[in-house]
């Protein structure tokens, strides 16, 4: 029943479910970051790639404006609550809104627009780095005082600093595209073949 473009209760439930899945993936991948700080920088590669699968499935599920914006608001809230840097929260919502508008312009059907939209959506990963940049000095201090070794902090700042952040954002964007393309392949291979979407 495409009688309205308004989100229904079912859609809100779907948004909640997929947000929970993305967050679980984020936690699982995030755990690896404590092994070495370069992996923290590697989130921009890993997360968009892994999240590509659920995201591409998600794009086929609602196809209405708001699906990505609300998801990004939820992500921002969760980030905030779990103490992962609320400086990035407005950024997450902003990229979510942009992603939503792009997907909408393609009617949520256009493959190209969906891929680009997902690339923007992936940028929430970078928002995690925000506190590292804005409050670099105090963050560094707090890391060391907080018990991280000096090596860890040094490596982290070698990988994530105002000079590299541009590169990280671009890498994240590119892997958002790659993640979307691969994710779409997986969705075709499994979900379309099985007749679920």
């Amino acid at each position: 029943m495409d009688k309205s473009k308004k989100l229904t209760a079912k859609d809100f439930i779907t948004i909640g479910i997929f947000t929970a899945i993305i967050f679980v993936v984020e936690m699982a991948v995030g755990m690896t970051g404590y092994i070495h700080p370069y992996i923290v920088a590697g989130y921009v590669v890993l997360l968009p790639l892994v999240c590509g699968i659920p995201m591409m499935l998600y794009y086929t599920k609602i196809e209405k404006f708001g699906m990505l914006t609300i998801m990004s608001v939820l992500m921002a809230i969760i980030m905030f609550v779990t103490g992962m840097g609320y400086l990035g929260a407005p950024l997450i919502i902003l990229t979510g809104l942009i992603a939503d508008l792009i997907a909408k312009s393609g009617g949520y059907k256009s493959y190209k627009k969906t891929v680009i939209s997902n690339a923007f959506m992936s940028l929430w990963v970078c928002a995690n780095y925000f506190p590292i940049l804005v409050t670099a000095d105090s963050y560094r201090k707090s890391l060391i005082e907080g018990g991280f070794s000096e090596d860890y902090a040094n490596s982290l700042f070698r990988a994530v600093n105002p000079k590299t952040i541009g590169i990280l954002v671009i890498v994240c964007f590119i892997f958002g595209i790659i993640g979307a393309v691969l994710g779409k392949k997986v969705v075709r291979k499994h979900f379309e073949k099985a007749g679920i979407v």
Partner: peptide, 10 residues
């Protein structure tokens, strides 16, 4: 309400 429903589901 929509946001609340989504959050409750999360």
């Amino acid at each position: 309400d929509g946001l609340t429903i989504s959050l409750a589901v999360v």
